[in-house]
């Protein structure tokens, strides 16, 4: 566990989390949530949880982003907050 990389990735995770719930476009929020999930996957790999990293990359980042984009295209991209 290299603490410099860990601090950097934790900072990016926090930024992506705040950005995903503040951006004024639902498609942008879905893509930022995918970036958040990939950063978490990197964090699990740094902390030695390689099986969790694999699952997060395939299920958390892959399937979740596809579901979000599909739902946004079936509804609307407009959001007030």
């Amino acid at each position: 566990m290299i603490w410099q990389i860990e601090l950097l990735v934790l900072a990016i995770v926090l930024i992506c989390a705040v950005a995903a719930i503040t951006v004024k476009d639902l498609l942008g929020a879905a893509i930022l949530f995918g970036a958040y999930s990939f950063m978490l996957c990197l964090l699990w790999a740094i902390m030695g949880a390689v099986d969790v990293a694999f699952t997060e990359a395939s299920v958390g980042a892959g399937v979740s982003t596809v579901l979000f984009v599909a739902a946004v295209f079936r509804t609307s991209r407009r959001t007030k907050d």
Partner: peptide, 29 residues
């Protein structure tokens, strides 16, 4: 949040925070 999709994103962030807590328990230098 007022938008339903934003609420769902918040729910997912809450779940991954719990996962981060558990993985941090198991990690060691």
């Amino acid at each position: 949040k007022n938008n339903l999709v934003k609420k769902i994103i918040g729910m997912n962030i809450l779940q991954t925070a719990v996962i981060l807590f558990f993985i941090s328990i198991g990690a060691k230098y």
